[in-house]
Simulated scan of single mutants.
Amino acid sequence: MSAAGVAGGPPVALVAGASSGIGAAVARRLAARGSAVALVGRREAELKEVAESIREAGGTALPFALDLAEPGAPADAVAATAAALGPVGLLVCSAGAIRLAAVHETEERHWERQVRVNLTVPFLLARAVLPGMRERGHGWVVNIGSGVGSEVVPGSGGYGVSKHAVHRLTELIHEENRDFGVRAVTVAPGWVSTRLAARPSDLGVPEEEVLDAEDIADTVAWLLDRPARMSVGPLVRVEPSASRAAAGDAMTRHLNRSRARGAGPAAEENR
């Protein structure tokens, strides 16, 4: 077992959606803090690149190429992490699926995919790690939500609904486990410059006014450094300062721009 799994040391971390964007940034930050990190996602080549960058920096990381939306995959990811690195003491769910559309335009398969990836996968991962965390008397569950989950944004469709629901899931985990030394928090970013989001230049917004993945990794690290007596959240919103970089407005403009071009927005996933 890595030193990260020793009692009193940095916890073993499992990061879902670690191949790029927020998940990759958080994984690198956790490894730099001393955690051994399991990198889980579909894109094997990219996971290996993230793992190699962590190892080159002196950290410990193992990639596990899994489609977490498949039956049994979340439990398999937790079991593989425990076998290779030790029991999971820190779960970060950053896997995400998005397809923007009005409710009446949303295809059932797109709805189900978003709910599965954005909500059911975090539930299944949490269900797998919580018994051990409760038994050991400490642990963290960090879900990456969205500012859109706290607003009514026309066109956000299954993405907005599933992110709103994952906020409530986190609140339930927090209340049910706070007296067992387990803390749960949703970090809900606004507009972050990743390939999952609209490009700032397409909407006339300077790149420097939009958040980047490192901003969210910074937030996660700050939360982990709070003393055990302190509860922050369980919903923590992180937004750009500039009003023109507001996520809800940007999402609406992105959808309208796609409609004006005569094509629906592309389905994109960060897993």
Rank of each mutant, 00 (worst) to 15 (best):
P200C: 12
W191H: 11
K163P: 06
T219I: 02
A7M: 07
V210E: 09
D179C: 08
T219M: 14
H167C: 07
L124R: 14
H167N: 03
V50C: 05
R259S: 06
S193N: 14
G233I: 06
F123M: 13
R99G: 11
E108Y: 13
G158S: 15
V117W: 06
N118K: 03
S20Y: 03
W191T: 07
P63E: 01
V220N: 03
E107W: 08
R42T: 09
R55K: 15
A73G: 05
L14R: 04
L68I: 04
V117D: 02
V185K: 01
A25F: 02
S19E: 12
D179V: 06
V78K: 01
L130T: 12
V161P: 02
V148D: 11
E44I: 00
V182N: 05
L172W: 13
S19N: 13
E49I: 06
L68K: 03
P71K: 07
E108D: 09
L223K: 04
A32L: 03
R33F: 05
V192K: 09
A250V: 04
S241V: 14
H164K: 04
V129C: 06
L119H: 02
P227N: 05
A80M: 11
Y159N: 02
A245T: 08
L91H: 08
H174L: 00
R99V: 12
G41K: 03
S19A: 15
A57D: 14
G8K: 11
A266V: 11
A217H: 02
V6E: 14
D179R: 14
R178M: 09
P74W: 09
A247R: 03
R136A: 15
W222Y: 13
G137M: 06
A101I: 08
T120V: 15
A57N: 07
G17S: 08
P131M: 00
G160Y: 11
A38S: 15
L100I: 06
P206Q: 03
V152Q: 07
A83C: 03
T186W: 00
S2D: 12
G262N: 02
A128C: 09
A242W: 12
M230G: 00
A267Y: 13
L91F: 13
E214G: 11
V166K: 00
W191G: 10
A25I: 12
A13Y: 05
G8F: 14
V117P: 07
G139P: 07
G132S: 10
A65V: 06
A247K: 02
E214N: 05
G34K: 09
A36F: 09
S193E: 09
R261W: 10
E49Q: 15
A32K: 06
G59D: 07
A82S: 14
H254S: 15
T170K: 01
L85S: 12
I144S: 08
A247N: 07
R109P: 00
I144T: 07
G233Q: 04
A97S: 15
V187N: 09
